[in-house]
Design a protein around this nucleic acid. Structure first.
Lengths: 243, 243
DNA sequence: CCACTCTGAATTGTATGAAATATACCGTAC
DNA sequence: GTACGGTATATTTCATACAATTCAGAGTGG
């Protein structure tokens, strides 16, 4: 089965081994990963020639990848002027959090009603998070594991569109988290939050799963906004244009 | 302000006059319009060379447009095998309706809380629909006008992400409607539905706007599913591969 | 009669060069 | 000193040539 062109989540991008057969796909995967992890910083100008050299491909497949990313809202693309990594604005983060509040809680409710026993088992495996404060490596593992849990939960809604919406949101929301932004992360608390939602799913209590999810997302949003507010002024949100 | 690369709704595609400066944008607009209106039928194979001749451009910008459409889920793209207009499946329609139920009702609630007086005026202008049964031309006008109202309502949520999600859904849901599918359309009933939602928005009653929206969407979904069920077997959903 | 391989045509994937456009810089006039 | 205009450069955009892959069908052997 050939690899179809669809958005790939950060999780998938990281799991994936062999180079996809089409160079466009590889360029898309590499760039998306770099953008979501802020290795390519928000606001950074992107030059075709440089990226080609870096990835080791020619301009045609690179441009096709950039077009996909443009449609996805990860790079801004102005004809005849060039590309830049889409800046992260406060307003956009607020919008994403509000949308997440709406769709992820409803996804949790559907998941509670529709998840198969196998899916519940898999959720249980992913629920536990570990994190050693101060260690960058485990921090990134934490972020990935947390996303993986929420993605699988969305998948359990058995609604592909709903899942895609949630996955896209989670991906985009990774960027502020990778910006050095240390909100007081607590692996045990996060694990506990996963556990109570999971319990509601096990009991097929959609109402409760949705309510818990809403509480947790409001919580997460407030922590993020607080951290951002304290960082305001420091040019985290939008780098100037250094290479 | 240069035209940025972002998804364009069917409404915009139709309103737009002058050819966009970038050929990629033009190809994207033309193809998307043809796909959403089912002038390019679901399942139809797409050949680069033919499309180039038809649009009058070369393969490079065309391929960039096809990549965007692939990411958007409007064409399926398998490396070295080609493109085809994404088929419309029952499951996908169900998923989209469910997601619409979730996001559009919440968008209506936010719109009730946040719409400006000017926006309410504009909504009022768009609320009324006209439709002469049996006339294809007015049928398509009806579809566009109805989408325009729902899009503006989503816009009034003042949440760009939420709006984008709704717009994308409305666009994708145009396809089954253009497939000849005549659900018992009633312009007066639809106008009445718009009016009651609009009244809730005027009164800033978010709860009520959301509830009305949910009722109307469930209604619309049932009408659509019924019409589809009666058409089942006739190859509406997925054309064979005639040009 | 079936299965298999090989060959050719059709189609997509990739690279590269030429044209179009925007931006920055410098000089000049006021 | 400032504003304006022109030129040079950098960058994107587009078209085309070439390479890689798939698919269909003929031919061959079992």
């Amino acid at each position: 089965m050939g690899s179809i062109s669809r958005p790939q989540s950060l999780i998938e991008l990281h799991t994936e081994q062999g180079p996809p057969l089409a160079l466009t796909d590889r360029a898309y995967a590499v760039l998306k990963h770099h953008i979501l992890t802020c290795e390519l910083r928000p606001g950074q100008r992107l030059i075709e020639k440089d990226l080609c050299a870096e990835i080791g491909i020619s301009r045609t497949p690179l441009r096709e990848a950039l077009n996909r990313l443009g449609l996805e809202g990860l790079v801004s693309l102005v004809p005849y002027r060039g590309y830049e990594v889409m800046p992260v604005t406060m307003q956009d983060i607020r919008d994403m959090c509000e949308l997440r509040y709406i769709v992820e809680s409803e996804a949790a409710a559907r998941a509670a009603e529709r998840a198969t026993p196998e899916e519940v088992d898999r959720l249980t495996e992913l629920a536990e998070l570990r994190y050693t404060p101060g260690d960058r490596k485990t921090y990134e593992n934490y972020l990935r594991a947390n996303s993986a849990f929420h993605q699988l939960l969305a998948h359990c809604s058995h609604n592909a569109r709903l899942e895609a919406t949630v996955v896209s949101l989670l991906d985009h929301l990774q960027r502020p988290l990778y910006l050095g932004l240390d909100l007081g992360l607590d692996a045990e608390a996060a694990t506990a939050e996963h556990m109570v939602v999971l319990e509601a799913v096990r009991n097929k209590d959609g109402e409760r799963a949705a309510r818990l999810m809403r509480e947790q997302i409001v919580d997460a949003e407030q922590r993020m906004m607080a951290a951002l507010a304290s960082e305001a002024g420091t040019s985290l949100m939008q780098s100037s244009n250094q290479k």
